[in-house]
């Protein structure tokens, strides 16, 4: 039995190491860590209230800047915190000009639980510069349609009235030219962001 475990262990570990070495430092052989889009997507014409209650015009307010758009909700147990903390930690390692060039916009798809204050407190855990947007259910549904992401779906509440929300897990990176050429799926790592952010901020596109 011990020999069996040893052989299986060495084989699997060896395969793991081999796969790791073959894969190198990113997601495949692409020059970009994110997923390149076949056709660029224009920055959506979304106008939603921000956490101060003022209307935030996505196109106008982020013109000429690298904009990373993400739909989520503050009670999310897995995807949203992982996405936000990974992006935030990568940004903190970037030079000041890259940080200044990037604008992160979080749109909550859960208007019932996510009041502006809740969204603000949530984003402040990561970075005070992150913009939080909310709106009515209809406004948010329209915003997801315009951004070409699937609409959020709401699960049945459990005994404690907690419910989860199915939502788009990718983060869309709009280059300074006003179009998204690349998206970052759930699982994007700090090292991936660190590889792409400076180039995106400079206006490079795939």
């Amino acid at each position: 039995m011990l020999i069996g475990i040893a052989v299986v262990g060495v084989l699997v570990l060896g395969i793991g190491l081999g796969v790791g070495l073959a894969r190198g430092d990113g997601n495949g052989a692409s020059a970009w860590a994110g997923t390149e889009l076949a056709e660029p997507q224009p920055k959506p014409a979304i106008v939603l209230p921000d956490t101060d209650g003022r209307p935030f015009d996505l196109q106008a307010e982020t013109e000429g800047r690298l904009t990373i758009l993400f739909f989520g909700y503050t009670s999310c147990p897995d995807i949203c915190p992982a996405n936000l903390i990974t992006l935030d930690k990568a940004l903190t390692t970037m030079p000041g000009d890259v940080r200044a060039a990037a604008q992160v916009v979080f749109v909550s798809v859960d208007p019932v639980r996510d009041s502006p204050d809740v969204i603000r407190s949530y984003l402040d855990q990561y970075d005070r510069s992150f913009v939080g947007l909310t709106g009515t259910a209809d406004q948010l549904a329209d915003a997801q349609d315009i951004a070409q992401v699937p609409r959020a779906t709401f699960d049945e509440p459990d005994d404690s009235d907690f419910y989860t929300v199915g939502h788009a897990s990718q983060m869309i990176a709009y280059s300074p030219d006003g179009s998204a050429h690349i998206v970052y799926p759930f699982g994007t790592r700090q090292v991936d962001w660190a590889r792409d952010l400076p180039r995106l901020a400079r206006g490079e596109t795939p």
Partner: peptide
Amino acid sequence: VLLVCSHAPDTVDLL
């Protein structure tokens, strides 16, 4: 050898 293999990131991530 096992120490290095079993702590390789892809081994840990995979297993």
